[in-house]
Computed example of a mutant assay.
Amino acid sequence: MRILVQRFSALGDIMILLPILQQLKAEHPEHEIALLSRPYIGRLCQDLGLQFYGAQLQKEHKGVLGLKRLVKEVNRDFKPDLLIDAHSVLRTKIISKFFALKGVPTESLHKDRQARKAFLESTNPAQAALAPISQLHLDCFARQNISISFNRDSIKAAPYQLSAEHLQWWEESKAEINIGIAPGARHKSKEWPREKFIALLKDLGRPNRKFFLFGGPDEVEGLRELAKAAEVSFEIVAGKFKLDQEIALMKHLDVFVSHDSSNMHMAAWSGCPVVSIWGGTHPGAGFAPYANEDHMVSLDPGTLDCQPCSIFGTSTCKRGDFACMQDLAVSKVAEKVNSLI
């Protein structure tokens, strides 16, 4: 069977999906599997044994006619027997409709928006926790009679390995203990203050420890200033490595510290222990890092009646002070990190 899976959302969401496709390919080698997503994801698919189709959503595949053209191109080349819509938004629903008109069976992610609303309104988010997004993906395949054994104990680490050049860089750069840090986040409600990260690095700093700072190319100078302010030994990873090489590097680290972000999911998939910092979002919304649920840090339950305030994060705070992050003690994060070293 030729199975086409589509998802175009943020990198963190893709990082949740890829380990499932990795497991699917391992358990069902008889199936041909292709991913339809944004072009930059393509370099991650080859080592997983997946075919890849990159959609130019702002160019030739823009708009309804562009999506129709995309479907025609993919159908001509891959000829899918089944389409899995792992995103279930307007764009992917249009794509699914076009494939259905060509006689291709489709299955889509079931999002329970009412349950998400109830979760945010709950006074006990842990008790009102939603099904993990990974389970929703598995349910998609199960409805098409495709079983995947995917749980905490069966998750395979990402297959990527450092290139010879990057491996040499690592051997020359590493210390006795190596800690990954990703202080950036897309939304302010998910971002621990910069001064907290500086204090954390100062607290964790030792002569035998080195910090590897991750982020986007536009964060390089900010990361450098942060590490210099903390007066610790460091290397800037941001802007130097492609996605597969970043994940490969994470495999070599002793622990990784991140917000609820794509870096959190990348590090978890690499197999590196991940300490994740949570503020305006909550792992009970279904986006906890794989196999690292015991290492999540946030304010104690019940401290704020407005936490969580959103499923995906927001740039505003109804209190006006982002207390969920401002009040999270450095010592609490440092204690968790030190427990894993």
Rank of each mutant, 00 (worst) to 15 (best):
H252M: 05
H252L: 06
L253Q: 03
L253S: 03
D254H: 12
D254Y: 07
V255L: 05
V255A: 14
F256L: 03
V257C: 12
S258A: 15
H259E: 00
D260S: 11
S261K: 13
S261A: 13
S261L: 10
S261I: 14
S262T: 03
S262M: 02
S262E: 01
S262N: 01
S262R: 03
N263K: 10
H265I: 11
A267V: 10
A267S: 09
A268C: 06
A268G: 06
W269S: 04
W269M: 00
S270Y: 08
G271Q: 05
P273W: 09
P273R: 08
V275P: 04
S276K: 15
I277Y: 04
W278F: 12
G280I: 10
G280A: 13
T281I: 08
T281F: 06
H282E: 13
H282Y: 12
G284V: 13
A285K: 00
G286R: 01
G286K: 00
F287L: 15
F287M: 07
F287G: 03
A288P: 02
A288T: 02
P289R: 06
Y290P: 01
Y290M: 12
A291C: 12
A291F: 09
A291S: 11
N292Y: 12
N292E: 10
E293S: 14
E293G: 13
D294V: 02
D294A: 14
H295G: 02
H295M: 02
H295D: 12
H295S: 10
M296I: 11
M296K: 03
V297T: 02
S298V: 00
S298K: 13
D300W: 04
P301W: 13
L304V: 05
L304G: 07
D305I: 03
C306K: 05
Q307A: 15
P308N: 04
P308H: 05
P308F: 08
C309Q: 15
C309W: 11
C309E: 11
S310A: 13
S310E: 09
I311P: 00
F312W: 11
F312E: 08
G313A: 07
G313M: 06
T314Q: 14
T314H: 07
T314R: 11
T314D: 11
